[in-house]
């Protein structure tokens, strides 16, 4: 039986509320996923702790070395933020396509992780960005890798009765670029048939590191590590690139879904989308006079 809807004015107050309820309260952010479930099912929570009024979770800070995005930043704000447009293109593109205008006004980046949907647009983009997730709980603050935050389908490792995701910290790597692509059947509120993100940056030793991400393929955005290795040798001719992508995606297991389409259809879309995004990634580097870029 839920007794109270509590609106926290600060992070300290939010943690006080959670501590008071000793695991019997639940954090609420944008609520766009949560409230669909809450309306239809019973919840064991005795209180909701709303963190959308916590200003310290709503900032985007940029320094010389990193961008720190508060977990309470909405998708509308992500799409419009100039620093994100400039430095984290994949995230800005993902934010543009997430949900609908109304959902983007409500939904937060932190909620996109905690609800742990396997093709959550924000987290697909984040997976290509070398992100660290910052959170606070009974044992203080800690950081985790994004991948380690997923438990299973629709369930994250974050205990929403005791922990709060506070921020996403993305290093500003040298020569970093990232892009996001999505195939869907209507302009808004359409589940992706496939979404895809790519990212690359130059490491301190001058070599390149890349991330190639596809979803939904499992319970979290899938990083195509074998393809990263295969493409690490340098730029390929377009046909050779396409064949390499096709070969690696052919080995992945796609599910047939009534909503998203047949496995074979989704696989073909995945090849096409990944090819388009990698071309954007490589072409962009070339445009900036880095035709010797290695991936």
């Amino acid at each position: 039986m839920v007794e109270r809807y509590l609106k926290a004015g600060s992070l300290v107050e939010a943690m006080q509320f959670l501590n008071h309820y000793e695991g019997r309260a639940r954090v609420v952010a944008g609520a766009t996923d949560l409230w669909v479930g809450i309306k239809n099912h019973n919840t064991k929570a005795e209180a909701f702790v709303d963190i959308t009024g916590v200003d310290e979770l709503k900032t985007v800070e940029i320094s010389k070395d990193y961008i720190r995005i508060g977990s309470g930043v909405t998708f509308h704000e992500l799409e419009k933020n100039v620093q994100i447009q400039k430095n984290l293109r994949a995230l800005q593109e993902a934010a543009r396509w997430m949900g609908s205008p109304q959902i983007r006004r409500m939904a937060t980046l932190g909620g996109n992780l905690v609800s742990a949907q396997p093709a959550a647009d924000g987290m697909v983009a984040m997976s290509a960005l070398d992100v660290a997730v910052e959170m606070v709980g009974p044992d203080g603050t800690k950081r985790r890798t994004l991948e380690s935050c997923y438990k299973t389908f629709g369930e994250s490792m974050i205990d929403s009765s005791r922990e709060i995701v506070t921020a996403f910290v993305i290093p500003l790597h040298n020569q970093a670029h990232s892009y996001f692509g999505r195939f869907h059947l209507r302009e808004a509120n359409a589940l992706p048939v496939i979404n895809c993100a790519v990212g690359a940056w130059m490491k301190e030793d001058g070599s390149w590191e890349s991330r190639y991400i596809l979803a939904p393929l499992g319970y979290h955005p899938a990083r195509l590590r074998a393809m990263e290795d295969a493409l690490a040798g340098g730029l390929l001719e377009e046909r050779e690139l396409y064949d390499t992508i096709e070969k690696h995606i052919e080995e992945l297991t796609f599910r047939t879904s009534l909503v998203r389409g047949s496995a074979e259809f989704r696989k073909q879309i995945a090849v096409q989308l990944m090819h388009e995004q990698i071309i954007r990634l490589w072409y962009n580097h070339e445009q900036e006079g880095e035709s010797d870029a290695k991936h």
């Binding site: 809807y5 609106k7 609420v28 609520a31 766009t32 409230w35 669909v36 309306k39 909701f48 709303d50 959308t52 509308h76 609908s100 205008p101 109304q102 959902i103 006004r105 409500m106």
Partner: peptide, 16 residues
């Protein structure tokens, strides 16, 4: 001043 979906917007959120 922002358009939202009232059907999935917690009533408690509009306090204040």
């Amino acid at each position: 001043h922002n358009a939202v979906n009232a059907c999935i917007f917690p009533a408690g959120k509009v306090d204040g």
